[in-house]
Measured scan of single mutants.
Amino acid sequence: DVEPGKFYKGVVTRIEKYGASINLNEQVRGLLRPRDMISLRLENLNVGDEIIVQAIDVRPEKREIDFKYIP
């Protein structure tokens, strides 16, 4: 289970102007929005990149997770 405040290694699977889709595994994925990137710009991400993200909002009833990137 993903817990708010914990850090996870994820893989960038899609990049859109509203954010990047991050997969932690086949069943768990979430969104990294541009506003939640401290020192990383969306255009510097590539599909397949592995990054460390922090879960900031977990809504299991909607199967949604928001991530934050902290270098």
Rank of each mutant, 00 (worst) to 15 (best):
V47P: 05
R29F: 13
L32A: 01
G30D: 03
I38M: 12
L40S: 06
G5L: 07
K62L: 14
E61C: 09
I22V: 10
V47C: 06
S21Y: 15
V47L: 11
G5R: 03
R29I: 14
P34A: 09
K9A: 08
L31I: 13
P71N: 06
G10E: 01
A55H: 01
I51V: 06
I51K: 00
I22A: 01
F67T: 02
V11M: 09
V2P: 05
G10P: 00
V11D: 02
P60I: 09
V2M: 05
I38H: 13
N44H: 13
V28Y: 12
S21D: 09
A20C: 07
D66P: 01
I70R: 06
E43P: 04
R33F: 03
Y69M: 05
I38R: 07
I70L: 10
K17Y: 13
P4Q: 11
Y69G: 02
E3W: 09
E3T: 13
T13Q: 05
P71K: 07
D36L: 05
G19L: 04
P34C: 08
V11Q: 05
I70M: 11
F7Q: 03
N46R: 15
V58T: 05
Q54M: 15
E26V: 09
P71W: 08
T13A: 08
I65F: 07
Y8P: 00
D1C: 15
M37W: 04
Q27D: 13
G48A: 02
D36C: 09
I65S: 03
N46K: 14
L24R: 00
V28C: 11
F67H: 02
N46C: 13
R63I: 08
T13I: 08
V53E: 00
R29E: 12
E16W: 14
V11R: 10
A55N: 00
E16F: 15
I22Y: 02
R41K: 14
K62V: 13
G19H: 07
D66S: 14
F67A: 02
L40Y: 04
R41T: 13
V12D: 01
I15V: 09
P60R: 08
K9R: 13
K6N: 08
G30H: 03
Y18N: 11
A20V: 13
E64D: 06
L32Y: 02
Q54Y: 12
D36M: 08
D57V: 13
V28D: 07
I22C: 05
I38A: 10
E26A: 14
G10S: 01
E26Q: 11
P34Q: 12
V12G: 00
S39K: 12
I22N: 00
V11I: 14
I65R: 02
L32D: 02
L24A: 01
V2E: 04
D1H: 14
L45F: 04
K62G: 08
D49E: 06
K6G: 07
D57A: 15
K9T: 09
N25I: 06
N23G: 07
L24Y: 01
G19E: 03
D57R: 15
M37S: 04
R29Y: 14
L40R: 04
V28A: 05
K68T: 07
F67S: 01
D49N: 02
E26P: 14
G48H: 02
I22D: 01
R41W: 07
N44F: 09
F7E: 02
R14T: 07
F67W: 07
K6A: 06
P60M: 09
E61H: 10
K68N: 04
M37E: 03
R59L: 05
V11P: 01
Y18F: 13
L31C: 14
I52K: 04
Q27M: 12
E3L: 13
N25S: 14
G10N: 01
D66R: 15
F67M: 03
Q54L: 15
G48Y: 02
F7Y: 10
E26Y: 10
R33S: 07
R29D: 09
K17V: 13
I22T: 00
I56F: 10
E3I: 15
T13E: 06
G30M: 05
E16L: 12
N23T: 14
R33G: 03
D49Q: 12
R59K: 08
F67I: 03
K9D: 01
E64I: 11
L40I: 11
R14V: 08
K62T: 13
E16I: 04
I56V: 10
K6Q: 08
E50W: 15
V58K: 04
A55G: 01
G10V: 08
D49A: 04
E3D: 05
V12L: 02
M37H: 04
F67D: 02
V28F: 10
I22L: 03
E50N: 09
I38G: 15
L45C: 04
A20M: 05
D1E: 12
I70G: 06
E43A: 12
K62I: 09
G19N: 03
F7S: 06
A20G: 02
R63F: 13
P71I: 08
G19P: 01
V47Q: 02
I51P: 00
R63G: 15
R35F: 07
A55E: 02
V2F: 11
V2I: 15
N25V: 07
Q54R: 05
R63K: 14
R35L: 08
Q27A: 13
K68Y: 07
I70W: 13
E26R: 12
K9S: 07
V47Y: 03
I56A: 06
G5V: 04
G30E: 03
A20H: 03
L45D: 00
D57S: 15
Y69P: 05
R59A: 04
L42V: 05
R33P: 04
L24T: 02
I65P: 02
N46H: 14
E3M: 14
Q27S: 14
E64M: 10
K68L: 09
G10W: 06
V12S: 00
T13S: 10
G5W: 07
P60K: 11
K17P: 14
V28G: 04
R33C: 07
E3R: 13
E64Q: 12
S39T: 10
F7K: 05
I15Y: 00
L32T: 01
V53P: 00
P71F: 08
R35N: 10
N25G: 10
L42G: 03
V58W: 09
D36R: 03
L45M: 07
P71Y: 07
D57E: 14
R33W: 04
I52H: 04
E26H: 12
T13Y: 08
E3G: 04
L45I: 09
V47E: 05
E43D: 11
E16K: 10
Q54T: 06
K9G: 03
E3C: 11
D66L: 15
A55S: 04
S39R: 11
R41E: 08
L42P: 04
M37A: 08
D1G: 14
L45K: 02
E50D: 08
L42Y: 06
L40T: 06
L32S: 01
Q54S: 06
P60N: 10
L45S: 00
P60L: 10
Q27P: 05
I22F: 06
Y8H: 00
S21N: 08
V28W: 15
P4W: 07
V58Y: 10
I56R: 05
G19K: 03
E64N: 05
N44V: 07
N44K: 06
E50L: 12
V28I: 14
R59T: 05
K68F: 08
P60G: 10
G10T: 02
R14Y: 07
I52Y: 11
D1N: 14
Y18C: 09
G5S: 04
R33K: 08
V28T: 12
M37N: 08
P4F: 08
E16H: 15
D66F: 15
K6Y: 06
L40N: 04
V58C: 09
L42W: 06
I70Y: 11
N44Y: 10
L45N: 00
L40V: 06
Y8A: 00
